[in-house]
Nucleic acid binder design. Structure first.
Lengths: 226, 226
DNA sequence: AGCATAGCTTAACGATAAATTAACACCACT
DNA sequence: AGTGGTGTTAATTTATCGTTAAGCTATGCT
């Protein structure tokens, strides 16, 4: 695993912690950027999407929980892993953290070995697919930076879920994606929505792009054809 | 998928959890048995091997991790799937769970939908044989990921059963498959359909691929020739 | 030749998956 | 609070697929 490919965002208001964690993780080869409160973190994510965020909970200006929900509300942030840092004495329950979408939870005082071990373990699970590059396929262009698609040179704006669904299908033209795959990739493995939800989104895409760009294979799934 | 042929063992010391999980899974059609600690679980497995075990971690008498290692030490238990249940507040390390041979990990409080979805997904993995490889045979190409057949460089779309049937026959060219084999592999062991059904599907394939790619051996079965 | 057997063909029916529609819930932004 | 966009669900309709039944055809056997 090439650790230098991974970009971590570290958010804490105490400079000591920042330095300590930063030192230990950059020594592993990870790319680190930092923010000193939730608001800064959100801004950073908007500019540059990290693979994993280490987020303190108690912070001035904007706390970690709030920041995470704001970040998760941004498009294309489904696959960012969240690790909360917290002092043992703090009142926040771990529960609330997991509800907010945490993938792990590290208690202060932080032990370097445990830190590194956990982060490594989490990142090992990511299979990094670059959903930030524009897909160009026939007369369709998908531009993730602007969240806009261009079909036969007219621009169509799609809402988040529709965009990500189309992006997934178009990432492998002609490949059939079954419903489970789609749910896992677009909605995330813990989010369970009804099966019909997918249909509805497919329908909306078809409606907006007036062409049978997505074909359905009954009993199997959907696939994108150019 | 016939869920009634899957046997799940549910292990937890809290009767409420047992009842809740049991209700939700048996409603799906699964066969459920229960145990209220690790020791009981091991005894149950010795008597009757389940397909999947839902195991709480914190339990009196014998905890989940220990129980799982004891179970895995028994002969013929390698293919039992293990799902750990854990309270979020527990200072768990998911890692330890996965090392102990866990296939998945569900945190309490358990949401019915997530529970059912995960279990379904895991069990679907069990009877998934390797029918994902592209078969190329003479002028015929079967591509399961794209779900298309290409015969003499023109594409043919087949519905699911026809596709699977052709895939089976083409997986071993020149081998004669008798009707029982075909029924077992394409329809499943305990699905009973009439004999004529196979004929009809064979006919439809022949119709769509205009060539005598499948030849019938009267009184024996069918075989694929290139 | 006549009959039996196994498979072929066709059409019709029922089951099942997906399409569609409408309603609702939820945010973000006024 | 009100509004519009987004995402989800539930209910209904539609279309396709799978299955069955019935009659037909070819082949083999006495």
């Amino acid at each position: 695993m090439d650790k230098s490919k991974f970009h971590l965002l570290l958010v804490d208001d105490e400079p000591d912690i920042i330095e300590f964690v930063s030192y230990n993780l950059s020594r592993e080869g990870y790319q680190i950027s930092t923010a000193k409160n939730g608001l800064e973190a959100v801004e950073q994510v908007k500019k540059n999407k990290p693979d994993l965020i280490l987020m303190d909970i108690m912070m001035p200006v904007m706390d970690g929980m709030t920041a995470v929900s704001k970040i998760k509300a941004l498009p294309g942030t489904n696959d960012i892993m969240i690790v909360f840092l917290t002092a043992r004495a703090e009142d926040y329950s771990q529960e609330a953290g997991f509800e907010a979408g945490a993938d792990d939870y590290i208690s202060k005082p932080i032990k370097p070995k445990i830190l590194v071990h956990r982060i490594n373990a989490l990142l090992r699970r990511i299979n990094k697919t670059d959903n930030n590059k524009t897909i160009e396929c026939g007369s369709l262009i998908i531009d993730p930076t602007k969240y806009v698609i261009i079909y036969q040179s007219n621009e169509v704006v799609l809402p988040r879920k529709e965009f990500e669904l189309l992006q997934l299908l178009a990432s492998h033209p002609n490949k059939v994606f079954n419903r489970d795959e789609i749910l896992a990739k677009v909605w995330g493995k813990d989010v369970v929505v009804g099966d019909r939800t997918i249909d509805v989104h497919i329908r909306k895409i078809r409606e907006k792009i007036n062409a049978n760009i997505i074909i359905t294979i009954k009993g199997v799934g959907y696939k994108f054809v150019e």
